[in-house]
């Protein structure tokens, strides 16, 4: 999900760049030598996965997967999305250069919120499969919802006339939210069952599966 070049006003672009720069700085501080191959290969996988087109009625949508990315990467989602968006901008002109900060912020901030939410539920509550799937569903759906809301704010702060367009974007993403929620829930449960150590940012020991 991204905003093209030339749409947003300068203050919005600057605010986005500042938030993204802060996030990337924290993310990089969090990054050990060992994390370099791990974070980047997981980022590549999420990049490829976000190119998948999932059918929805007569059309298809592609996944955002920022909730899933947050759960997997924690603060490192900021550098991860920065790299993914820069590559998309240079390789196939999706998004852009001056909008890089805003685009990273609207996807990574919700991802981070999902990460903390997921962690607080899964690590503190002694739950089973139900708790895990419900909290992953919420992560997937909330990631998209918050991203769309931040996108709407970015557009409406630029120009009030974007309101109608922003409302339509929100409306059209409601089914995407559901799909992302379902997909994230199934995906996280699958990974926790098959390879729990892959979720290195989350302490899974209190789960009772």
């Amino acid at each position: 999900m991204h905003i093209s070049e030339g749409v947003l006003a300068a203050p919005v672009l600057a605010a986005g760049a500042a938030v993204a720069a802060g996030g990337v700085a924290v993310g990089l501080k969090d990054l050990d030598d060992q994390d370099i191959p791990k974070t980047s290969i997981i980022t590549s996988a999420l990049f490829i996965a976000s190119l998948i087109h999932v059918p929805l009625g007569p059309t298809s949508v592609h996944l955002v997967l920022n909730g899933l990315a947050g759960v997997f990467l924690g603060w490192k989602v900021f550098p991860a999305f920065l790299i993914a968006f820069f590559l998309q901008a240079v390789l196939f002109q999706h998004g852009g250069l001056t909008t890089l900060g805003v685009n990273v912020s609207i996807v990574a901030v919700p991802a981070l919120i999902c990460y903390y939410l997921f962690r607080s539920v899964v690590e503190r509550k002694r739950g089973g499969l139900k708790v895990l799937s419900v909290s992953s569903f919420v992560c997937g759906a909330l990631g998209v919802l918050l991203t769309v809301i931040m996108l709407m704010f970015a557009l409406v702060f630029t120009q009030d006339s974007f309101m109608e367009m922003a409302n339509l974007i929100l409306l059209s993403h409601l089914p995407v939210m559901l799909i992302e929620g379902v997909l994230t829930a199934i995906c996280v449960v699958f990974i926790v069952k098959t390879k729990p150590e892959a979720m290195q940012e989350i302490e899974l020991s209190s789960l009772n599966l």
Binding site: I41, I48, C187, V188, K195
Partner: peptide, 19 residues
């Protein structure tokens, strides 16, 4: 959707192992 979720999950697991 379940099939796609398994695809993404498998991709992440394979990537983790590769890393």
């Amino acid at each position: 959707y379940r099939t796609y979720a398994y695809l993404v999950g498998m991709l992440l697991i394979k990537s983790y192992d590769r890393s």
